[in-house]
């Protein structure tokens, strides 16, 4: 259960699936907005930015991918793609467009709800968490969920913050994609490493001075990622 009321926007053309998602989200204490098309979603988003957006890729009118792209351009809101298409390039396109996670139809509601909760949850600062983590020009403040580079605040999404926090806490140790999927995304079983790869790509665009030649967030080919020690 979420302690503070969160809002979710469900963009889905199938009324039954909308109803199922609404009921489950409401059971979890969420306020739910619905949109049948991408156009309707964009209109709603002008009035209010929700805490999470669920997008079906195949929509009448503008494609789900375009909706994700234009949404990501103006907000760091968590986006989960719900798609019937499991083709690799569709999934990759969705992640590259800026989605934070994806589930494929038919999904198990409990699995989807766990993913949603993970994206919505507030940062849990436990006693062991260091309030401020540093790595080169980067500074991460756990209490306020802020990231600074050379003193300038960077706009990072919830999940980007979590990934960066996990990597900086590891102090130069390599974290596998699998580990990140479990701890950050909350996957209960093996997931798709490309979800991590795409997020790392986006994160580099924000924290690195030259994202094509990263010198803070390093790839260890075949194993995972680590921060410069």
């Amino acid at each position: 259960m979420l302690t503070v009321t969160k809002s979710a926007l469900v963009v889905e053309d199938d009324p039954t699936i909308r109803m199922v998602l609404r009921t489950n989200l409401e059971n979890d204490g969420c306020r739910v907005m619905e949109a049948e098309t991408g156009e309707a979603a964009l209109v709603q988003l002008q009035d209010e930015m929700p805490d999470i957006v669920l997008v079906d890729l195949r929509l009448p009118g503008i494609h789900g991918l375009d909706l994700v792209r234009s949404l990501r351009a103006r907000s760091e809101v968590p986006i989960i793609i719900v798609t019937a298409n499991t083709d690799s390039h569709d999934v990759v396109a969705g992640l590259e467009a800026g989605a934070d996670d994806y589930v494929t139809k038919p999904f198990v509601t409990k699995e989807l709800m766990a993913r949603i909760r993970r994206q919505l949850r507030r940062p849990v600062s436990s006693a062991s968490d260091e309030a401020v983590l540093r790595c080169g020009p980067l500074e991460l403040r756990a209490d306020t969920c802020e990231v600074f580079r050379d003193g300038v605040a960077l706009p990072v999404s919830r999940i980007e913050f979590d990934v960066l926090q996990a990597l900086m806490s590891a102090q130069g140790r390599v974290l596998s994609r699998d580990y990140l999927l479990r701890t950050v995304w909350g996957y209960s079983n093996a997931g798709d490493g490309r979800v991590v790869d795409n997020l790392i790509y986006r994160l580099r665009g924000k924290i690195e001075s030259d994202p094509s030649r990263p010198d803070l967030l390093l790839t260890i080919r075949g194993f995972g990622y680590r921060m410069k020690a």
């Binding site: 199938d14 039954t16 699936i17 109803m19 199922v20 998602l21 489950n24 019937a84 139809k105 038919p106 999904f107 198990v108 509601t109 409990k110």
Partner: peptide, 8 residues
């Protein structure tokens, strides 16, 4: 998806 969602 709709059927399993409703069933759940």
């Amino acid at each position: 998806t709709a059927i399993s969602g409703v069933t759940e």
